[in-house]
Amino acid sequence: MNIDEISKGKLDVNLESSEISEINNLTDSLNRVMASLKLAITKVGVKKGEIFEEAVKAKDTVTKKYEDLIDSITGWAWETDENGDIKFCSKNVSINLGYTPEEMIGKSIFEFMTPEDTKRIKSTFTDLSKNKNPISNLENWNVKKNGSKVCFITNAFPFFDSQGNLIGYRGVDTDITKEKIAYYKIHLLNKELEEVKNKIGTLLNDKENTKKSERSSQDKDILEKKWSENDFDSVYLFDENANILDCNENMYKRLGYSKDEMLSFNMADFDILESQEGIVEKISQAKKNGVYSFKTIHKKKDGSSILVYQNIQYLKDKNQFKCIVREDISINK
């Protein structure tokens, strides 16, 4: 839009769709046109009637373009004084709030906001007007004439008198209710998703705790009784220092060794978790209580490993110890 052309009296200039700042410029332009016409009367001596007719035509033309521009804006345009009292609003307010411009003018812009937002927006407006700052992307909830709520995003520029004093704001409110509702729905869905995740986590923990409880009960049973030797068990004999004295075929074959190799071992040689000192301590417990059971990991000759239960039994008459070994198949469940 060429404001200078209008100022020079060229009234057939086409005004393009514009922002809030251009509305302000258009108003200023109209004032300059009127001032130019008055000056022409004084200098040229044109008849006042002719000048008046031309001035009216110019004013009507600019006013029409001004109104068209206002009506083309998405949302509704408004003007307030420095206190927020409405001095002007566009016809689109009826679409956005359900009120006519006549019902709006003279009232505070805060009267139409929800009670929750009124205090917050008033405080923000006071701070901005005190510093003569523009209003930028200010979200606020309002109540329509029919009682429903609508969310606007407000943008406005301050305008001033000839001494630079703030005399009000000109701005536009745009309806973003659908976007806000969509945002809240997404937020709610994310919250529900998080709750579902937590429930799944709780269920998994409960299941794991149940398994642990079952295993703990199983371990307790193992500790409190001697095992009966079965054909599929691995069995070996050892002394108080954990040196292997004898073993059955299942024992050395399960670990991948020959019997001679097994008879040369100390228990610590194929136990990954326990040191010899730790094993000797367990042997002492078995000697004291008659039996001692625990879980450990055996290392096979090929480097692989197996999780096992070991049940140590004290053979008092021989002062030796027998260990029955069973693979812990629960690890595969």
Rank of each mutant, 00 (worst) to 15 (best):
L30Y: 08
T118G: 02
M113C: 11
V44T: 15
D68S: 01
K107M: 05
S36K: 10
I70P: 02
K122N: 03
I121V: 09
L30W: 06
N83G: 05
K59T: 12
S90T: 06
L11T: 00
K38W: 15
S108G: 07
Y66H: 09
T42K: 12
R32Y: 14
T80K: 02
G49L: 03
I95C: 05
S18I: 15
I73W: 01
I105Q: 02
S129W: 00
E103R: 06
L69A: 01
Y99D: 05
N96G: 04
D127Q: 11
K107F: 12
W76M: 14
E79R: 12
Y99I: 14
L11A: 00
E50A: 09
E102M: 11
E111F: 14
T80P: 08
D68Q: 08
F110Y: 07
I51W: 02
I23P: 01
F112P: 07
A55D: 03
D60C: 09
L97H: 02
T126F: 01
V44Y: 15
V13F: 05
G98N: 03
S17G: 09
F125S: 11
D68K: 02
L69F: 00
T74N: 11
I121L: 04
A55G: 06
A77Q: 08
I121W: 00
A35E: 13
I86A: 03
K38E: 15
K65M: 13
M34I: 14
E19V: 10
F88M: 12
D71E: 12
I23A: 07
E102Y: 06
A35C: 10
K65L: 04
T27Y: 09
I73H: 01
N92W: 11
E54V: 14
T124V: 15
E103W: 06
K91F: 07
D12T: 15
S36Q: 11
N92I: 02
R32K: 12
W76C: 08
M113Q: 13
N131Q: 06
A40K: 05
T61A: 10
I121S: 05
A55C: 04
K119M: 02
V13K: 07
N14F: 12
F110V: 08
E103S: 06
N14K: 12
A35G: 11
E116T: 06
V93T: 06
